[in-house]
Design a protein around this nucleic acid. Sequence first.
RNA 1: GGGCGAUUAGCUCAGCGGUAGAGCGCCUGCCUUACAAGCAGGAUGUCACUAGUUCGAUCCUAGUAUCGCCCACCA
Length: 1020
Amino acid sequence: MTATLPSLTNLPTQYDPTTTEAKWQQVWESHEVFKADPDHPGEPYCIVIPPPNVTGSLHMGHAFEHALIDTLVRYHRMVGRNTLWLPGTDHASIAVSTLLDRELSSQGQRREDVGRDAYLERAWQWKQESGGKIVGQLRRLGLSVDWSRERFTMDPGLTQAVMTAFVSLYEEGLIYRGNYMVNWCPASQSAVSDLEVESREVEGNLWHFRYPLTSGKGYVEVATTRPETMLGDTAVAVNPNDDRYQHLIGQTVLLPIMEREIPIIADEYVDASFGTGCVKVTPAHDPNDFEMGKRHDLPFINILNKDGTLNENGGPFVSLDRFVARKQVVKRLEEEGFLVKVEPYKHTVPYSDRGKVPVEPLLSTQWFVRIRPLAERALACLDEQNSPEFVPERWTKVYRDWLVNLRDWCISRQLWWGHQIPAWYAISETGGELTEDTPFVVAHTAEEAQAKAIAQFGASVQLEQDPDVLDTWFSSGLWPFSTLGWPAKTQDFETYYPTTTLVTGFDIIFFWVARMTMMAGHFTGQMPFKTVYIHGLVRDENNKKMSKSANNGIDPLVLINKYGTDALRFTLVREVAGAGQDIRLEYDRKTDESASVEASRNFTNKLWNASRFVLMNLDGKTPAQLGTPRPVDLELSDRWLLSRYHQVVQRSREAIDQHSIGEAAKGLYEFIWGDFCDWYIELVKSRLQGEDARSRRTAQQVLAQVLEGTLKLLHPFMPHITEEIWQTLVQAENQQYLALQAYPTPDLALIDPQLEQAFVLITDTIRTLRNLRSEAEIKPGLRIAAVLQSEDDRERNILNAGRPYIQDLAKIASLTIARDFAPTTTDVGDVAIAAPTPPSIVTAPAVASPSSPPATATASAANTDIFLPFVLLLPFLLLVAFALAGIVAIVRLLISLATGTPIAIGWPQPSTGRTTVTAPAPLPPDIVPYPAQNIAGVTGTVQVLIPLAAVVDVDALRAKLSKTLSKVEADIATLTQRLNNASYVQKAPAAVVQSTRDSLAEAEKQAEILRERLQRLENS
RNA sequence: GGGCGAUUAGCUCAGCGGUAGAGCGCCUGCCUUACAAGCAGGAUGUCACUAGUUCGAUCCUAGUAUCGCCCACCA
């Protein structure tokens, strides 16, 4: 047994998440509880983890995302699906390279100094040592992943998949190599993809230059934000329709400094209305100019080295850094009179995502994926089958628009850590050097490449593998199927592919989701997942995006250590009701406290203590040993709780099925804290302590049954605490886990809205009584008398059925339920002393329960504080009442008493149950005298009175009644107005109109009661 | 320049055509034998603004404002 059954009396009153969570994480993993089995019955349910970077450490985004995924996965596992959640990590080429390069440079070295092999050795060593950090931290989240299937993007199997994909795409002409303009990051000295570039708005300048016409007849004026690029200008362009410059087209200008004669060309790209309408053209350093250069067959002059310094084409500025050169170019142009003006100019500059420096558009030879065919296929799946389906739906458009505009993908990176490109160059064909024109072969392995090359170039061929590695996202794009064994047709792949749901953030739709759908569409012929659940970001306490650079991250481990994993997870998940919305996490950086996580922690504690209470009252029996309660034994509160329970079962399942995970979490919170703890547990206490063995047993059965079901319902959200309690509750044998139990199924026959509605009358009455007590400052422990009056038979029946509950929870010693008050007010004060001995039948309900001491005892206890003559007077008053009441009432009472027939109540019973009410009370007297001194409230059409010796504060009471009355009168006005509206009555649904009529009737009754109350107050 | 989201109690957020909800915070009273990480009671809102649709709008439509995000090659 994993959870020893603790001595119940010694269970701590505070739940300790730390040891409990560590214990279950260890047990689940070591017992391989979440190991998937392709032969398991049930429809497969598979999620692959969005692989975190090996460089990473756990941040709040991970915690949030994994909390969501784990909730889904655990739920579906319990629902009976054949479930696999596959974990793993991503090699993060650029991030790791940056890290290692920095380490090297701190030792005064560059990666070239140590060499590729040694560098990679360090990288792997680093991966072994610190790469596991994130995985260890993930374990603290208690995820139900299958660790036996953990993958890393550079595992042999996944590398095999990458090679297969590359070679196949190459052979199909979907990968090509060529000299094109790429985004060059001078910091990492590598090409980066369009996606790895972010635009930043900067306060820059716009420099205006004059380029003299070669003809000597004047100048053209151009403007630029990057003056140094003028060194590589090879043309000036104007719009072909720009009348101002028609005569210049075809002429030339003399490029200052470089003294190069360059043509004036006409190109549609130029916007005649912007600036002077003349544009300098630098085909090697600007994407638009590159296109113009191609259109007009201009020379491409590269002026930059890989590190961002100027090369030999930079003329006098060779080897200067690009930004130093910029200043000097401007200075020189100014000196030579070519600078027209400088104006401040706000514009966007592309920055490298990783390197955090401006990228340079640079011509270089790179590998590209021809993206259109792949994108078109993904688009077809989306348009024809809405696949994948995005939740929330609005992301579909974002995804779609991106695919439509997608351009070829540069996949080569001038780095060493990653999948080295499987292309081998026949350097022997180009004098032993690797040049742009060196012929090459593409192959899965070096051996295969050798064979291919020999066939092509002869036995003496010398090969050299392409030094570059692939963009990390190339391998990530294969993740949903490479992790399942592709390209091999493994059983895992056959069973779990395509996966079910991908859960990720919107920031990753382009990077990852689209790459996966494109790759999967091409290689597997289907979309890799059925749905994509897009969640929002976790923002900090100031609603700022958490980021490393802002240093505003909130460490999940700090909160886990303080409040527990379950509390943190529940907080994150319950916040997410509006799916896809960002969530804000409350946090105090001085104390590392979070009010919202604390609230969830308090909830775990509430569950813990409620469970303690149940366990302490089951006589050491398990739910199974106690068995299911017999329907005939179920009391009103039992049936109410079961109705509430089955409703929450139904709602939880529906909510999770619709990805409304937050709503499910909140529903469970309310059920557990509100229905189960605040009401049901309080209601059964007297039964558990009482002498009615059958009632006690039934209460135990219901408690046990509902607690166990609730633990199952809550388990996907709070896996540790529920497992811990459940193990104890059921005294689980070895290898039995809550995580593997069946998720509850609602029994719709037990959901009884009418019964719940009736119960609300009882709870509202209790609330009203408590309210009155509180306002009259009656001591909380004091048991008092109270009168409930309603003309409605049904209401009185309900109240009578709920009599023990009302007496227990509102601490009422003697409760009178009356149809009406006697027409005369009696001054009861003096008569009280002379009251005769009470007939025993009347006080029976109060005496029945040990928790309700006899009225006389209460009254004597009350004497010290508030004199309660009414209690003593009751018998006498009742005699008066009998006299005043009609014969009918007496007859009814006598019949009821004589036959012992239970009083039927006015709502339908479950088909299985007998129509009984267990409340032992006799039929209440119909008419009672009106207590002269009292405080009163109203709920529904029930008048609630507490007789007092003296009303403490008449003014306060009057004010309160007046306030309530005016509120009710306002309601009456609105409702009347609505009902007087003919088109409303005509057009609105009948049920709505009826409920309006009911509301009006009730409001009018309330008003009547309140007016009468006020009237009596004035008279007293 | 396009597109998206948000705007509801002091704070964090649910809700959604039929008389406004929760948690936290606040006020009052309680160590009531599961829980003070708790219990009971209480106060609090022009549902951003303006028009429209509707018998009826916090909810639907169209604008406006503020905040935030994404995308975009105007030198």
